[in-house]
C-alpha cells in the first residue's frame, strides 16, 4: 500500500465508476450512429477500473484481478479473430460478415450484427490491455 487516498476521492470515484461503465456501454453500442465505437468504449471501461485502482488500492485488485484482465483481453482478440476467420469456412472472404453462420438473419441486418460483434471484441481487447498496461506500470507495491 503506497498511501491511502482521502475519503472524498474514494467516495466520489465509487459513485462515478458505474456511470462511467454505463456510458462506455453506450459508446460501444452507439458507435454505428454517432461518436463512439469499440476503442472508445473499451478505453472508458479501462478508465473506470484504473480510477478504482488509483483510489481503492489493493481492494480493487481483489475485485478485478490482473488475471481477469488478461482473460478479457485475450477473449476480445479471440472474438475478433473468430468473426474474421469463420466466414472463410462458409465460402466468404476474411471479415465478410455476410458469411457468418447466423442463418436466421440476412443481408444488411447480418452485416450490422457482424459489426456489432467486432466492436464488442475490440472493446474487450482494449479494456483488458489498458488495465494490464496500468498494472504493469504500477508494479506489485500495493
Amino acid at each position: 500500500m503506497i498511501q491511502q487516498p482521502s475519503t472524498i476521492v474514494r467516495t466520489v470515484v465509487n459513485l462515478l465508476v458505474p456511470f462511467i461503465q454505463l456510458f462506455a456501454l453506450y459508446a460501444i453500442v452507439h458507435g454505428h450512429y454517432g461518436a463512439g465505437g469499440g476503442f472508445q468504449g473499451g478505453a472508458l471501461l479501462a478508465v473506470s477500473i484504473v480510477l478504482s485502482r488509483i483510489s481503492n488500492g489493493a481492494e480493487s485488485l481483489e475485485r478485478f484481478s490482473s488475471t481477469r484482465a488478461t482473460v478479457i483481453a485475450a477473449g476480445g482478440m479471440l472474438l475478433f479473430g473468430l468473426v474474421g476467420i469463420v466466414p472463410m469456412f462458409f465460402g466468404a472472404s476474411f471479415l465478410d460478415y455476410e458469411g457468418l453462420p447466423l442463418f436466421w438473419v440476412h443481408g444488411a441486418e447480418l452485416r450490422y450484427l457482424g459489426i456489432l460483434i467486432i466492436e464488442v471484441g475490440i472493446a474487450l481487447a482494449v479494456f483488458g490491455t489498458l488495465v494490464l498496461i496500468y498494472d504493469s506500470l504500477a508494479g506489485d507495491k500495493w
Binding site: S6, I8, V9, V12, L16, F19
Partner: peptide, 20 residues
C-alpha cells in the same frame, strides 16, 4: 452534473497530493 462532482474532487486530490 458530472463536472460539478468531478472537477472539485480532482482539484482536491491534486492539492492533497502536492501537500503530502
Amino acid at each position: 452534473v458530472f463536472i460539478m462532482i468531478a472537477n472539485p474532487t480532482a482539484t482536491h486530490a491534486i492539492v492533497k497530493a502536492a501537500l503530502k
